[in-house]
């Protein structure tokens, strides 16, 4: 619609958007700035808005040494743990849900409807709700303090299954039939036709799930006790000491900034596919 509008009507949307951006961006800015000051500055109750000169030292200590008193692991290890966990969760979730959606859409098996509804119902039971039984099972299986224990319970995913199911149902039946005539069995159809067609959906989902995995807090907190299994999100929490010791805020800030980087990188790398996956309708 093309309309002539007054100056205010034109500026107002921008103002609203800019305010929104400022609200979101300001804490990030504070973290960036905070990481550049000596430990004494924030501890003294100041929160400067201009950069200080200790940036290199903060990041060096965050990555290589770790804070002097609290966590014993440097950020590098925690980043790696988080990355492995988020990766396994995202890839695992996509693989499992692709396969289950494939089964639900393309095969007639007994209790197919029931299977579908059971998957659907788990939507209403996120980890937080079933955390005690899940912990019990993980503990009995000896999965505490292992990468498997960290990721497996988070992998089952109703949301992704439903998404792929919706997508598969839009794939024309004639493609399946053409594949049959071309001599492709079910799994060959899955790998040769369905997977390539789902590429953009997979990319979009990967970004979302990676960030979901990266941000996990409660489950890793329960399942890991060893320092070398710690994820970055938990690491940050542990750096903030509430009792007598002094929190090394510049390192907390540096760590927070570092913790933001991998998801940002993933988004940037996958951006093109991600956006296409969200908007594409053409089959």
């Amino acid at each position: 619609m093309v309309e002539r509008k007054g100056a205010l009507a034109r500026i107002l949307p921008h103002l609203v958007l800019l305010t929104g951006v400022a609200i979101v961006a300001f804490p990030v800015y504070l973290a960036l700035i905070g990481a550049t000051h000596e430990s004494s500055v924030i501890a003294n109750g100041q929160m400067p808005l201009t950069p200080g000169g200790a940036a290199l030292d903060s990041y060096y200590r965050a990555i290589v040494i770790g804070p002097s008193r609290t966590t014993r692991e440097p950020v590098g290890t925690m980043l790696l743990n988080s990355f492995t966990m988020a990766m396994l969760i995202a890839v695992g979730k996509i693989a499992i849900s692709l396969l289950s959606a494939f089964a639900v859409v393309y095969f007639r098996f007994p209790f197919r409807k029931a299977a579908f509804w059971m998957i659907f119902i788990t939507l209403m039971l996120p980890v937080e709700v079933r955390i005690y039984p899940t912990y019990k099972v993980a503990a009995d299986l000896g999965l505490l303090d292992t990468m498997a224990g960290l990721t497996l319970p988070l992998i089952a995913s109703a949301t992704a299954t439903l998404l792929f199911r919706q997508f598969f149902m839009t794939v024309p039946d004639e493609l399946v039939e053409a594949s049959k005539i071309d001599g492709a069995g079910p799994m060959k159809f899955f790998f040769d036709t369905l997977l390539p067609l789902s590429r953009t959906n997979m990319a979009a989902l990967f970004v979302i799930l990676f960030i979901y995995g990266w941000n996990q807090y409660l489950w890793p907190l329960l399942i890991t006790t060893r320092d070398d299994m710690q994820t970055i999100v938990i690491g940050i929490k542990k750096m903030i000491v509430t009792s007598d010791a002094i929190t090394e805020w510049q390192i907390v800030m540096a760590t927070a900034v570092l913790a933001m980087l991998p998801p940002v990188l993933i988004v940037i790398v996958m951006q093109k596919l991600f956006v296409r996956g969200l908007v594409e309708t053409e089959k």
């Binding site: 053409a178 049959k180 005539i181 001599g183």
Partner: peptide, 17 residues
């Protein structure tokens, strides 16, 4: 696949990718 036939569909059913 083993009937030794080939089929042309109304919507062509070409593999888009």
């Amino acid at each position: 696949a083993d009937r030794d036939i080939a089929m042309v569909f109304q919507n062509y059913a070409l593999y888009p990718h």
